[in-house]
């Protein structure tokens, strides 16, 4: 029983990571119905650049800030030069491929200039040894920080979306950007803002995740991004609270499978779950089906 509890807590730890990634992915979906297939590389870049800067003697906070500024610029570039033109092609093939392309560029650049070997990532928020005890099981504070951030973000975003005029504007943009523009909503800044916010979130997520593992390499973000997709899909794409739940469910399933079946199967199960949920409940476990007009 204590085993199960350990596994579940471990699951909640990694699950909160997936949730954080999924929340970031959702942000752009809100405004443009697109998702950044290069998000994994953005996470990697946030972590890796910080690590390299810190190794070069820059203080932690400054290094993190500098990385986030670079990420914001990259997201602006992504939106302006690859997503917006690709949306004109029609269908999602254009932007799915072009954002994947940007991700691959970033990964290639990181491998070229930071090296393809793993770089040590410094402890930024807590050290890996910090923990609290929950029912006699250790819960690492680094993970707790991620969980707290995820929960806080979900609360904030739900509030933003439901209660503020910005939330309504964002929903209007996602429904019909042209109509929203006619209604006087500043569509461009909102879309651009969602991309920047999504990128910043990914960057922060990258740093928080990198410190739990202690290292980061150019291929670091890709699988995590897929787990983020799984979490987003599980919870219903676009839903913040769904992303949180989806992430936690995914994390717990992964750890339970790893603990009771085989650690080798843990990752495969997550990918398989993506396939199954997309087929059986494309609106997510907690979402409602969209009605499509023919």
């Amino acid at each position: 029983m204590e085993d199960a509890l350990t596994l579940i807590l471990a699951g909640i730890s990694v699950g909160s990571v997936y949730a954080l990634i999924a929340i970031g992915l959702n942000l752009t979906y809100w405004t443009t119905r697109t998702m950044n297939f290069g998000q994994g590389s953005v996470m990697m870049l946030g972590a890796m650049m910080t690590a390299v800067l810190v190794a070069g003697g820059v203080i932690d906070a400054l290094a993190a800030l500098a990385s986030l500024v670079v990420i914001a610029a990259i997201m602006v570039f992504t939106e302006v030069f690859t997503v917006r033109p690709a949306l004109k092609i029609g269908g999602s093939m254009g932007w799915a491929v072009s954002t994947l392309g940007v991700g691959i560029i970033l990964q290639g650049v990181a491998a070229k200039y930071f090296g393809s070997q793993a770089v040590a990532f410094p402890d930024m928020v807590f050290s890996a040894q910090d923990y609290v005890e929950v029912f006699g099981v250790r819960f690492a504070l680094q993970y707790l920080a991620i969980l707290v951030l995820s929960v806080a973000l979900v609360a904030l975003l739900e509030l933003l979306l439901r209660r503020t005029v910005w939330g309504r504007a964002m929903r209007a943009v996602s429904m019909d950007a042209d109509l929203a523009a006619v209604a006087g909503i500043p569509v461009r800044p909102i879309v651009l803002g969602s991309y920047i916010a999504s990128g910043l979130l990914a960057g922060i997520a990258g740093m928080l995740i990198a410190q739990t593992g202690g290292t980061v390499d150019p291929a670091f973000g890709f699988d995590l991004m897929i787990f983020g997709f799984v979490a987003a899909v599980l919870g219903g794409i676009g839903s913040s609270s769904g992303a949180l739940l989806g992430g936690l469910v995914l994390g717990v399933i992964e750890k339970l499978v790893g603990g009771y079946v085989s650690t080798a199967a843990a990752h495969g199960i997550a990918f398989a779950l993506l396939v199954v949920v997309l087929v059986a409940r494309p609106q997510g476990l907690f979402g409602q089906r969209e009605v499509v007009k023919v």
């Binding site: 690859t82 254009g94 491929v97 072009s98 954002t99 392309g101 691959i104 970033l106 650049v109």
Partner: peptide, 12 residues
Amino acid sequence: IVYGIILAFSLI
């Protein structure tokens, strides 16, 4: 990097 650039822009 080249593959990335191609994917990002060639369809456009």
